[in-house]
Design a protein around this nucleic acid. Structure first.
Length: 222
DNA sequence: AACCAGGACGTGA
DNA sequence: TCACGTCATGGT
C-alpha cells in the first residue's frame, strides 16, 4: 500500500465519509445545503450539475458558508439555472452573490460558465474546454469534472499541498505534476477521488487552517 | 484587528 | 517560469 493510499485510510478512519459535493435541498420550508455521505448517486439532474459548477466558482478563495448564502439567494430567485442566469440582469446577479465576495468577477464568471454549459447540451465537457473558459482554473475545472460528471481527476487545492508537504509526502507545487502523481498512485475511481479531496479539506480545516500548520495533526505515515 | 477562506488572472521580471 | 498585486465578503 503506497503512502497516498495509507493517507486516505487514515483520513477516512478519522473523519468518516464526507458525501461531497454539498447540494441545496428543501428541508422543511427552508432551503439548506446538504451533504450525502450515504448516497453517491448525486448529482441526479442537469440542474444539480450546474449547481456544482456555480458552487465551484463561487467558492474560489472564499469560505463555503458565504457561498451557501449566495447559492440560497440564487435558488430563492429561481436563478440556479444556466438559462435563467443568462437571462438575468447582471446587476441583480451581483446583489444575490454578494456574500460570496469578488462579486464583480464572479458575476462574469457565472455568465460565461452558464453560456458554455447550455452549449454543451448535457454532454460532458473536455478538460481543455473547461480550462479555456475565463474564470475556470485547474481546481475549479477538476472539481466540476469530478463532482458534477464523475470524471476521475484528482483535485488539488491549497490544503492538499499544505498537508502533503507537512507529512513529507510531496513538496511538489506544480498543479498538473502533483495531480498526475496522485492519480498514478490511486485506482481511477471517481468515488474515491471525491471522498479523498473532501477528507483533505475536512482534515485541513481542523489542523491546517491556522499557524503553525499541522499542530496536533494525528496523521502518521510509516 | 489581523488573518483566513475548498483561486484565478494580469503583469513584469 | 515565478513572484506579486488585485479582487471582496464574513467569520474568528
Amino acid at each position: 500500500m503506497n503512502p497516498y493510499q495509507q493517507l486516505y485510510r487514515q483520513l477516512h478512519r478519522i473523519h468518516g465519509p464526507q458525501g461531497w459535493w454539498p447540494l441545496l435541498r428543501k428541508s422543511g420550508a427552508r432551503i439548506a445545503c446538504r451533504y450525502h455521505p450515504d448516497d453517491y448517486r448525486y448529482p441526479k439532474t442537469s440542474r444539480q450539475r450546474f449547481e456544482i459548477g456555480v458552487g465551484a466558482i463561487l467558492t474560489q478563495n472564499t469560505n463555503w458558508g458565504n457561498v451557501e448564502k449566495a447559492l440560497i439567494n440564487l435558488a430563492t430567485h429561481s436563478l440556479l439555472d444556466a438559462r435563467a442566469i443568462l437571462n438575468a440582469n447582471p446587476e441583480h446577479l451581483k446583489k444575490l452573490i454578494r456574500p460570496a465576495g469578488y462579486f464583480n468577477q464572479k458575476t462574469t464568471k457565472l455568465r460565461l460558465f452558464a453560456e458554455s454549459y447550455t452549449a454543451w447540451k448535457g454532454t460532458i465537457p473536455h478538460r481543455d474546454t473547461l480550462l479555456g473558459i475565463w474564470g475556470i482554473g485547474p481546481e475549479t475545472c477538476d472539481s466540476i469534472l469530478l463532482y458534477a460528471y464523475q470524471v476521475p481527476v484528482f483535485v488539488i487545492d491549497a490544503y492538499t499541498k499544505r498537508i502533503f508537504k507537512h507529512l513529507g509526502l510531496s513538496s511538489e507545487t506544480d498543479y498538473e505534476t502533483l495531480r498526475r502523481s496522485c492519480e498514478q498512485a490511486l485506482p481511477r475511481e471517481p468515488a474515491l477521488y471525491q471522498e479523498y479531496h473532501a477528507l483533505l479539506v475536512a482534515h485541513a480545516k481542523r489542523y491546517y487552517s491556522k499557524k503553525p500548520y499541522g499542530k496536533n495533526c494525528p496523521l502518521q505515515l510509516s
